[in-house]
Nucleic acid binder design. Structure first.
Lengths: 188, 188
DNA sequence: TTACTTTCTTGACTTTAGTCAATGAAATCC
DNA sequence: GGATTTCATTGACTAAAGTCAAGAAAGTAA
């Protein structure tokens, strides 16, 4: 939680401690589910170390919709905010350490520390910004371009998650990603 | 702004009026740009009547990334929050009436009316939820399924915007959407 | 109504992705 | 270290999307 708190420049030390105490830190084995589709989310997760993968199981096939690594927040907003069943799963791709942010506690902290609510509003706006850019990229780019973009922006992922999960995250099949990589290797 | 305010159940009448006064309502001709790529966003727009289209111009081609209709907010969070150039445009697809929410005024209102910040945090969380679901759908669905989904969830759009804009919003070419529609018409 | 422009559809062909099956490479497990 | 499982690549084929060009249909304006 070091990085998260260091960003809370608007908060006093007292506030930081009170908030920090509300969010336990836990470490989970690879393969552990932090959220299963059909369940209603009660927590948000902030990844301190490791990697979470978000996916949807459709017709026996895992469709990866996100990877969350160090300093990123894994949150299913729709499920958490509206208390409706999640369509997607969170699974640990590695041994992963997360800060667990309980939704109800968060509401209480908003009342206690208004500046914490400011902090979270701002954080959500940042996430919203990143989310919009990501959706726009997905709409405007072809799979090959999307792969090149990930290669640039999240090179860590390539050596961290199996290619077939990366493929489904790009919206294509593993065989196609393999061929895209071959095309790229030839054309330079 | 009727609908927006009616949802502000947590705000007093006094607060509502003060807030409402800060956000002028204007009507624009079809074809008017409310935001051009390269500019830095200063406003958010809440659509009262009409339709805004968000698009990116790439190699002379307009790639549509969103449609905003009645009761939806058109906001480029990345540009507005981080004050960086927008990659995308907002254009009126019809004669369109919007409430203009100035970013700086919003910050001032947060200080004056803490409940307004609560209201906005909650609203952004809702948008984030919808945005995540949309991205997940785009990753997991094929163009044909995406089209069927829009047909269900936003049937108004079909008679409101030209098909070639809808096509680019689905990430495909107009010819392909035309053929998808033909396939669907045959198979039932 | 006619003329003009814009949008949509269709046809022929190319490119890319999906499918299924086989093989190779790499990681994991006694 | 060898056996087994998991993952990545390749080949042959099918299906879907892209491209380019030609018309048809719909919308707009004089």
């Amino acid at each position: 939680m070091v990085t998260l708190l260091s960003e809370m420049t608007t908060l006093s030390e007292e506030e930081k401690h009170a908030i920090e105490d509300s969010f336990p830190i836990k470490t989970y084995e690879k393969g552990t589910y932090l959220m299963k589709q059909g369940e209603v989310a009660r927590n948000a997760y902030y990844v301190i170390a490791g990697c979470l993968r978000e996916f949807e199981l459709i017709d026996g096939e895992e469709k990866t919709t996100a990877f969350y690594t160090e300093e990123q927040s894994a949150i299913n907003f729709n499920s958490l905010v509206n208390q409706c069943p999640s369509k997607r799963n969170f699974i640990c791709e590695e041994l992963t350490t997360v800060a667990i942010l309980n939704g109800e506690k968060e509401q209480q902290l908003y009342k206690k520390f208004p500046r914490f609510e400011s902090f979270c509003r701002s954080g959500t706006e940042q996430m919203m910004g990143a989310g919009q850019e990501q959706l726009a990229e997905f709409i405007t780019l072809k799979p090959e371009q999307r792969y090149l973009k990930i290669l640039q922006e999240r090179p860590d992922l390539i050596n961290r998650v199996p290619q077939y999960h990366l493929a489904s995250y790009l919206g294509i099949k593993p065989e196609s990603l393999s061929r895209i990589r071959k095309r790229i290797a030839l054309n330079d």
